[in-house]
Amino acid sequence: MEDFYVKNTNEKIKVYLKLKPILFPDNEFTFEGTEIVAEEGKWGTETYPLTYQDLLKMYEAGFHTIEKDEFDRVEAMMKLSSDGELET
């Protein structure tokens, strides 16, 4: 199964997620999510595991699919941003 990419944006915050399937999950977490957040001109990124229930909530919350290119562009912008405040 391939990685996939989603986003959800509102007036204040833009969130992009790369979702990587965990091939051999040993608990309820089946994806590793790499999140990039743009909020009030600042960037943040973090990685955390997601469950099927998280995906269901994302569906209800209106997350939608984007192409890998869009995620890559955002990731590059974040890395290039001299004002970026990265959370690792």
Binding site: T9, N10, Y48, K57, A61, G62
Partner: peptide
């Protein structure tokens, strides 16, 4: 649950 829970990102328009 985690720092950014998905639901807080629900856009107003949606």
């Amino acid at each position: 649950i985690k720092k950014k829970n998905n639901e807080e990102l629900i856009p107003f328009d949606y």
